[in-house]
Amino acid sequence: MTVVGYRRPAPGINPDNNSSAYASTRARAPRHPAIRIEHTLSEITGPHFETGGASAIDLTRGARGEALGERIIVTGRVLDDDGRAIAGALIETWQANAAGRYAHESDQHDAPLDPNFAGAGRIISDSDGAYRLVTIKPGAYPWRNHPNAWRPQHIHFSVFGTGFAARLITQMYFPGDPLLAIDPIFQSVADPDARARLVAALQMDVTVAEYALGYRFDIVLRGRDATPPQE
């Protein structure tokens, strides 16, 4: 059986787990280099999820009313690095509320919860790879990485492409956030162009007048070494 592998990311795209400015890496990053293996069926295959799931969701409508904070629209496409749309990709998002607090039992930040905002979404990309999320702009929040440490505003994205080798979890940031320059997690990406791609773009053609600012965030997963054989 001929297996067409996934292209390897260029150096500097994915962070080195040994990034000691992010304190939690110190006891958790493996010390041995990962052992490179050629891709087999085990790596090029992967789970698929329900097709026909919603490609557009709105997290701002709570059971008892509208979520508090600045409503925003985040939209984009899931692509491979040949620019091909990935249809049917599962996208899961989670984030803090407008006050910088997660609806999570271990978040002890002294900021209010919003009973109308759970902050977690599940989206299936459409036939063009597109998705659309209406949500609340998350607040910055303190963390214990170093004294007076604050995370920049961000939304977590988990994405499944077509193969397990392309599995990605990342974070989307906002343009102009002054905390980006001093955030050890964002700065763990060595390549400045790759860092810039984690920052969504404010776009007036996504913005809806009298409703919400719109941001564009495309998610690009690894492509293939060659065109895979069709069934």
Partner: peptide
């Protein structure tokens, strides 16, 4: 490669 990869984050 036409488009560039999205980086991983924790």
């Amino acid at each position: 490669m036409k488009t560039k990869l999205t980086s991983s984050q924790t």
